[in-house]
């Protein structure tokens, strides 16, 4: 009897010890996998930030200084500096006294470019909401002939590659006299944002109960009132997602901006940053600083609204 109990106890401790060992192994495995993933995902960005804080002597050292010895915000100062009164051959670029790395005089263009990017993105977001919300309500909550066809047509317009739209857009924008204007970007960015906006909003509106519509109508609401007073407050999570996607798509867009903008009157952040990257005389530490500037707003938005972004991105995935 006691022998039996002892054997059972021994078996149970052995079992427990093995499971604790297994748990430890699992923990170590998970930790390593998570660390590996973190290095893969954030490593390149961390290196960009580190490079942007190094001076010319440090950034051209072999082996690289993974963490800057003497971090400096010199590059960022050049970006927010007030413009020199006149640009001459001598002051057209500022030379790093240590080793001759260039910071271009066009560094100042980044702030106006940010203003352009914000204006374009803001207008695109607003227009997306204006045309997207009523359309999504109609597609999700009203029965009519052509409903399914409309959804397919709206979605399929996004399958066309941007570069295929460039030629007709260019001729069209030139004919309207809108080359090198913010309007050209706002108009053309609707092509790349509106279909996705409608898609997300339709998925969300469909998940809201239909009875609300009936109840509001019985109470004497018009369709517009039903939409504004009943559904809009409930749809706020999807509206946040739409605002974020339209903003990020506009802020990050490069190809169309490259075609339509020529001067800083309309150039957006990606264009100005790309112009630094294509000039091999410019210090890489400055190019990285410009990159950091371009990266900060979208990354902050993505991290702050992570929940809405993930639910927006997966809106269609579950339903297939």
């Amino acid at each position: 009897m006691t022998a039996l109990a002892a054997a059972a106890a021994r078996r149970s401790t052995r079992y427990r010890r093995r499971s604790r060992l297994g748990g430890l192994a699992r923990g170590i495995g998970l930790f390593c996998a998570a660390a590996l993933m973190l290095v893969y995902v954030l490593g390149p960005v961390a290196w960009m930030v580190s490079s942007s804080l190094q001076n010319e002597a440090e950034i051209t050292s072999v082996p690289p200084h993974w963490i800057p010895d003497h971090p400096s915000v010199r590059n960022f100062e050049a970006i927010v500096d007030r413009p020199a009164a006149t640009v001459t051959y001598e002051n057209r670029s500022r030379i790093d006294p240590v080793s001759g790395g260039y910071i271009p005089s066009t560094a100042r263009n980044l702030l106006p470019a940010m203003a352009n990017s914000l204006l374009v993105a803001g207008a695109v977001v607003l227009l997306n909401l204006l045309v997207g919300v009523p359309a999504a309500y109609a597609l999700a909550k009203i029965r009519f002939r052509g409903r399914n066809t409309s959804i397919y047509v709206i979605l399929s317009t996004r399958v066309v590659p941007d570069i295929a739209l460039v030629v007709p857009f260019f001729l069209f924008i030139r004919k309207l006299g809108l080359l090198d204007s913010l309007a050209s970007l706002i108009i053309t960015y609707l092509a790349i944002t509106v279909p996705f906006t409608v898609f997300i909003l339709v998925s969300y509106f469909e998940s809201l109960p239909d009875e609300l519509d009936k109840a509001a109508r019985v109470d004497g609401c018009s369709r517009l009132q039903t939409l504004v007073h009943i559904y809009l407050p409930l749809a706020i999570p999807s509206l946040i997602a739409v605002v974020l996607f339209a903003f990020l798509a506009s802020w990050n867009e490069f190809l169309l901006a490259l075609m339509f903008t020529q001067t800083i009157a309309s150039q957006t952040v990606p264009i100005v940053v790309a112009s630094f990257a294509s000039d091999f005389t410019i210090s890489f530490s400055f190019i990285n600083a410009a990159g950091v500037i371009a990266v900060i707003p979208p990354v902050i938005l993505a991290l702050a609204f992570e929940r809405y972004i993930v639910s927006g991105l997966t809106a269609g995935a579950v339903k297939g």
């Binding site: 954030l42 990050n252 990606p270 940053v273 990257a277 410009a290 979208p298 990354v299």
Partner: peptide, 13 residues
């Protein structure tokens, strides 16, 4: 983070 950053910044990085 990688999803959010502009493709131009990704390129120069």
């Amino acid at each position: 983070v990688p999803w959010a950053i502009p493709s131009v910044a990704n390129g120069l990085m």
